[in-house]
Amino acid sequence: MEELLVFTKNSMKIKILPIFVILFFVSIFLAFYKGLYDSNIYTPDVNRKNIPVFQTKNFYSGKNLESSNIFEVDKTYLLNIWSSWCLPCRQEHSLLMSLKLNSEINIIGMNYKDNKKNAKNFLKELGNPYKDIFVDSDGTIAIEWGAYGVPESFLIYNNKIIKKYIGPLNEELINEMRILIK
């Protein structure tokens, strides 16, 4: 502390202070510069985590369901969070339909904060790509998964999350999925 004070007191005469000040600002400049080009869209790192354990209900039968009964070991799943009131879900639905037809992935639906009748109509209209559907009536299961909302999808293998997709899927992401599961 003492030295620091002496330093500041005499600093006007010493040449070190300007250099120090300049270095200080240069480093701030560099940090800002780098920050400018980093993406500041926040995505938490959930990849390679175990899937959460939860209780839910089956969409059709309304029976209670344990998460361990939905996801089996050694299999690949795509968990898709959807809802009939969500517009982007409509867009990605055809992709899910085609994914169901030509791949190994089992697609599981999580019906998010939805009305059962609307949801059924939605599936009647656009087809049902899901092997199983379970219900998340108050949105809390989605939070267990670390999701933000609808639509969102998780690629799962061996009860581990391989990758998380926020927002609607598109062709590119589907192709990426195909590569990932190989």
């Binding site: 300007p18 000040v21 300049i22 600002f25 400018l36």
Partner: peptide, 17 residues
């Protein structure tokens, strides 16, 4: 735009230093 303001800002800072 960010880059321009950033450079401009530091030009002013260094000028004043």
């Amino acid at each position: 735009r960010g880059l321009f303001i950033l450079i401009f800002l530091f030009v002013l800072i260094f000028l004043s230093v």
